[in-house]
């Protein structure tokens, strides 16, 4: 039981409070406030010019577009994988179950190197795709492929527990009422997993927006064409354009915070819906 009063019987409140805030203050709050203060060295006009330059706009478009495409691909394949893992028993299931987390565990640079090599013109995949007239490496499609790899576990791991919690009884009840399997899925199961699917989507999308390591190899990094926002920030830093880098970073941070807010609202909404349903 958490104690709400001024007087706490469990020990360690002051120590853990002091240490946590000290640590976060030094490591996060101080440097982060530095970031926002830095933007004030630019005038509003300069700031606006930096964040709306043609190069920046192209980078936003690529980053947001590819992240959106990748998150959508993750919704489809993530739902498929979660469904198969929860519902079916097949040889190698345990292996698949463990492998799903690989994109979390594998250093992003390794993912980047490997995917680039596989999809390049003479790579294992690229060779055949090129024959079909499909270029992946060094195009925006390649960016989306890398981001799909990175975001895969998010949807699987948010949908899986929800799918496991749905009682088989519910499906059986729908069947006794005459629903076809497809109707049961669309009308009974899908509404239940929708909130989890949405939050998996948002998590994958947010992660894709900031991703650097896996994308930087496969994108080709051509300004205006295949340059993602994190790379643009690094390029500006390398030219010692600290203010420019900071301005773009602030735009990205704002986007991330809005997404974070969306996730929290989503959580609250789905909790309230669940509570309303169970009658509390």
């Amino acid at each position: 039981m958490a104690v709400s009063s001024r007087r706490r019987v469990l020990p360690g409140f002051r120590l853990s409070l002091g240490f946590s805030w000290f640590y976060l203050g030094l490591l996060v709050l101080l440097p982060l406030s530095g970031l926002f203060l830095r933007t004030f060295t630019l005038t509003w006009a300069q700031f606006w010019e930096t964040v709306t330059s043609a190069r920046a706009l192209a980078a936003y478009q690529l980053t947001f577009g590819a992240s959106l495409a990748a998150a959508l691909a993750n919704v489809v394949f993530g739902l498929l994988v979660a469904w198969v893992l929860v519902r079916y028993r097949f040889p190698g299931r345990d292996l698949v179950e463990a492998l799903v987390d690989l994109p979390f565990a594998l250093p992003t640079a390794v993912a980047g190197l490997t995917l680039t090599t596989l999809f390049s013109a003479n790579g294992w995949y690229g060779r055949h795709l090129e024959a079909l007239g499909l270029k992946v490496a060094y195009t925006s499609l390649g960016v989306a492929v890398a981001l799909t790899f990175i975001g895969l576990p998010f949807v699987v791991r948010t949908v899986q527990p929800v799918l496991e919690d749905i009682d088989v009884d519910v499906e059986e009840a729908a069947a006794t009422l005459g629903a076809t399997p497809w109707q049961t899925f669309a009308r009974v199961l899908f509404p239940g997993i929708l909130p989890a699917l949405l939050s998996g989507f948002t998590l994958a999308f947010a992660r894709a927006l900031g991703e650097y390591g896996s994308v930087v190899f496969i994108s080709g990094n051509m300004p205006l064409r295949t340059e993602i926002v994190p790379l643009l920030i690094i390029t500006k830093l390398e030219q010692y354009d600290y203010a420019g880098a900071t301005a773009i970073a602030v735009v990205m941070l704002t986007a991330s915070f809005l997404l974070l807010l969306a996730v929290n609202l989503l959580h609250r909404w789905s909790h309230r819906r669940l509570e309303a349903r169970s009658g509390h």
Partner: peptide, 15 residues
Amino acid sequence: FSVSPVIAGLIFVLM
């Protein structure tokens, strides 16, 4: 989890 690693690096460069 929600901040790009590049931005995480950037804040220390600015510091």
